[in-house]
Write a protein that binds this DNA or RNA. Structure first.
Lengths: 226, 226
DNA sequence: ACAAATATAATAGTAATACTATCAATATCG
DNA sequence: CGATATTGATAGTATTACTATTATATTTGT
């Protein structure tokens, strides 16, 4: 059961930051500045020095909010998973059919993000682009087990669990609900990256969103829907 | 058509290295030492200083072979794609049925690597573990377009193309052959990583290799095979 | 066998990064 | 209005990611 949380940031684990960035103007400027700068220069070239220059603050001030850039990226990624949870909840509300709810959720998980609407300190379009390219770095590192113990991946796990439970409504004996969901979520990011940078690794068709079409078709084939 | 290359390294683009590591003892020690050290401490903590200490050489000597650790990881990843190409070729030789060839290839692409057999300077088991955790970093970076122009991802593209062509033999109208293949290759890596570090994002079943079973079933469902 | 070329080791040095520490200025809060 | 917390300014350290130089060892060509 997906629960709607009006405050997306409230699900973010406290240990990922030293001081909650949403409690001050500087904190919010750190978030918006990071999204701006990191989407431009990428995670590797991103430094707290460059960030502080770009928002007219200082390195030391930023270190009061986040231990390092890795945790800052983790924060943004947690925010993104939490935001996707919310989006999925909205898209399934008041819909009876499990099949239809699943389809809506897969669309929500895989479609491009085109509008930057609700949050003054988070540009959702640019955050989505950062997530596509950089998010796997939050777990593809040696501190993954430590971070996992702290609960840094909980919003991701909850999201996968919520979608997996819809799958089990449709086929209670299906063997790989979590695998199928995480393959689709990660896969959609990969395919959008490939479409942009390594097109021979994917397939694009004129005038349609192949990524979403592919994954919707894939899950229906796998679950024998229609 | 998959062509069998007896020399896997011969497909590796020259621009990824400054001096071919296979032309000297030191070069081979750089490769084997990197696989050893990087599988232990991870890409981020890996430095040329630590590597040179571990193989009793010097930083400057290693810089004569590779510009930086990123290109060294790229070399190993290219080697891995090329090795998979070879593995797929072996597994499809003399098999008539397209369906059977596809199944064998999907198994080859997704199964765990358990034996370190053929190469004295490459430990295939440890290389596979490095690829699972680190390989996406070779393209998830700002120099991806430059590296792509140099041809650093050609062995990957050829691998995807070879499998895609089997899919088209089975269903010449199938719309997403490359997307399906790259989703499976990347997905298998992700699922193995999740099984090890974030098990709630995947599904494991006692005594069987769920990852391979899942992806074989997935491609058969999608292509309506059986 | 020996000169010439090449590869490696040893060492030094630089600019940038990833932090930590200190203290002054400023805003806020009771 | 005084106390407290926040930020800015500045400085400093260890490590990293390289480049450069020279000496020594090894290989190669004749």
């Amino acid at each position: 059961m997906i629960v709607i949380h009006s405050n997306i940031a409230s699900k973010i684990n406290e240990k990922v930051y030293k001081k909650d960035p949403l409690t001050s103007d500087l904190g919010k400027k750190i978030l918006s500045g990071t999204i701006e700068l990191m989407s431009e220069i990428g995670f590797e070239d991103f430094t707290f020095k460059k960030l502080s220059d770009s928002i007219a603050s200082t390195e030391a001030s930023i270190y009061r909010y986040f231990e390092n850039k890795h945790n800052l990226l983790t924060y943004l990624t947690m925010w993104y998973w939490s935001w996707l949870q919310h989006k999925c909840a909205i898209k399934t509300i008041n819909i009876e059919s499990s099949e239809k709810r699943l389809e809506n959720v897969i669309i929500a998980l895989t479609e491009p993000v085109l509008l930057d609407e609700q949050f003054d300190y988070i540009n959702e379009v640019k955050l989505h682009l950062i997530v596509i390219t950089e998010s796997s770095k939050v777990y593809h590192c040696k501190k993954v087990d430590r971070d996992n113990k702290e609960g840094f991946f909980l919003t991701y796990k909850e999201l996968v669990e919520a979608v997996a439970s819809i799958i089990l409504e449709i086929d209670k004996d299906y063997q790989y609900p979590h695998m199928l969901v995480s393959t689709i979520i990660e896969g959609a990011h990969h395919q959008r990256f490939f479409a942009e940078h390594l097109p021979r690794l994917t397939d694009t068709h004129e005038g349609v969103d192949s990524v979403t079409l592919f994954f919707v078709q894939l899950i229906k084939s796998e679950l024998k829907i229609d």
